[in-house]
């Protein structure tokens, strides 16, 4: 859902900026929109958008939890669970 939210915000933001550029440059919408899109020579904005989507994907796919599960220490967790059980009993 985070990826979708970022995607919607990006598309709507680009449309809004293109709409304003139509008023400023008095050019057709499609031309202004294409000019606005981050394409090859202007790589900096491409990287920024890509980073935004990577971050959103990281959150959506719970990468931190997955990596913790795979590589994190498990002994502490077990210990805490044991303690909780002992307290409950």
């Amino acid at each position: 859902m985070t990826i979708l939210a970022v995607f919607v915000a990006t598309v709507l933001g680009l449309l809004l900026m293109a709409g304003l550029d139509v008023l400023v440059f008095k050019q057709p919408f499609v031309r202004v929109f294409v000019d606005l899109l981050p394409v090859f020579p202007d790589t900096s904005t491409v990287f920024m958008f890509a980073a935004a989507f990577v971050m959103a994907a990281w959150v959506d796919f719970k990468m931190t939890d997955r990596l913790k599960k795979k590589f994190g220490k498990q002994s502490n967790k077990q210990g805490s669970e044991e303690n909780r059980d002992a307290k409950q009993s």
Partner: peptide, 23 residues
């Protein structure tokens, strides 16, 4: 709107705002 926690959106949207500031 998307029923997500605000904290999860902060960094991605900040990056989008940064890219918008250039464009």
């Amino acid at each position: 709107i998307f029923k997500v926690k605000t904290g999860k959106l902060t960094f991605p949207l900040a990056l989008v705002a940064g890219a918008f500031s250039i464009l």
